[in-house]
Write a protein that binds this DNA or RNA. Sequence first.
DNA 1: ATCTAAATAGTACAAGTGTACTAAAATTGT
DNA 2: ACAATTTTAGTACACTTGTACTATTTAGAT
Lengths: 223, 223
Amino acid sequence: MKTKDKILQMALQQFNERGIEQVSIRSISSALGISAGNLTYHYKNTDKIIYALYLQLVEELGRSIEQVISQSPDIQWLYEATAYNCRMMWKYRFLLIDFVAISRRITDIRDHFRQLVKMRQWQIRQAINEMVELGLFIPEWQEGMYDKYILRMIIMSDAWIPDAQIHFEGQEEEIIPFYSELIVSSIQPYLTPAGQVAYLAVLGQAGPKKITGYPGIDEINQD
Amino acid sequence: MKTKDKILQMALQQFNERGIEQVSIRSISSALGISAGNLTYHYKNTDKIIYALYLQLVEELGRSIEQVISQSPDIQWLYEATAYNCRMMWKYRFLLIDFVAISRRITDIRDHFRQLVKMRQWQIRQAINEMVELGLFIPEWQEGMYDKYILRMIIMSDAWIPDAQIHFEGQEEEIIPFYSELIVSSIQPYLTPAGQVAYLAVLGQAGPKKITGYPGIDEINQD
DNA sequence: ATCTAAATAGTACAAGTGTACTAAAATTGT
DNA sequence: ACAATTTTAGTACACTTGTACTATTTAGAT
């Protein structure tokens, strides 16, 4: 593996584990057993590394969109797209955890991200429109109803990561399925009876119906 | 005003404007025109200041809960409680923007916050149960439906701040009403017809029905 | 008025950071 | 084989940060 890739790999690991403030050119280089001078040859500073990793994330997200845009959307598709997105977000979670700080330092990222969100909004909107046609989603009975829903969904799809970081400790394997399902479950009240059936079928094969493991949930239901 | 309070005030301002990494004992003290040595006399380091500000937030949030817990919940109550929370969150927004970084540095905050979330979950659960009794919310027709909803709502009530920070620039006055309504609007599909009426009545007096201003929303609806 | 504690200023230090620079080593093309 | 380029190591510097410490001023109590 090229040094340049090894740097990105190690940087990603350290960013995710420690947060961006605790990672420096020296911490990465010493972990890799290379000199700091060598690292600065490849990446002038940590901001350049962050930017490179951001581009990686965008590319990986884009790849999923291409894959998925060909077929016509259904509940299964929605679930898988969400799960895939969650996995990618988790892989690059430091970006979302420190996103405001990062976007303050690297304004290119903020500008690009804004575009990305617009694209995602548009794509989800198209998918919902199609699924209304297909009789899976109920028609929009209040103006702006689905726009708001989409916005909440997009915010949620970034926000679960800080939440997971705070409330889960250790048990990493459970995190992705838990939050994937939590996010997808927000569609439930917008489904037609036919959509409900499809949703439950997907859930039946993919995940549990009851959320457990999240600290606090179980205690609520005891009484 | 006591120096100790002036420090907190200035620190809050700088934290919100620059993010925690860009604020130091020296930046605060020089802005106040006092010596760094003096500041360390009151607060040993920035972490102590952050913790003090966190306690302030918790106290202000708690005050709203007390006020509100006496009366029986309705849609109006839900809206006002949400708006009040949003205002408080925004006032201490740096805490939520950098929450993961902060909770890594000050583990007391993380532990306390976990408790706080549990409390909020429980309170919302009680309120929803009551509003189901009152015929405003539909009965829970799927196991765990409201638990998931509550969790999404709580995540959202912290997550809108980073989103606002990225997508809004300048126009601060619009932010709170916009996101308050976005959060509250998530209840809509869970309302009974009677609940709908109450919800629309509250909206009519408090905010616009259509979301505008959020970059991207308007473009979606052009076609 | 004086004694004591609180509050403030100022200085010094060790540690860490990005940056710039030089020189050696490795790789590549011809 | 050799020249040119890329890659690597190492060093030095200016800057910032938290921390510790001393000395001075201010305020309050008796």
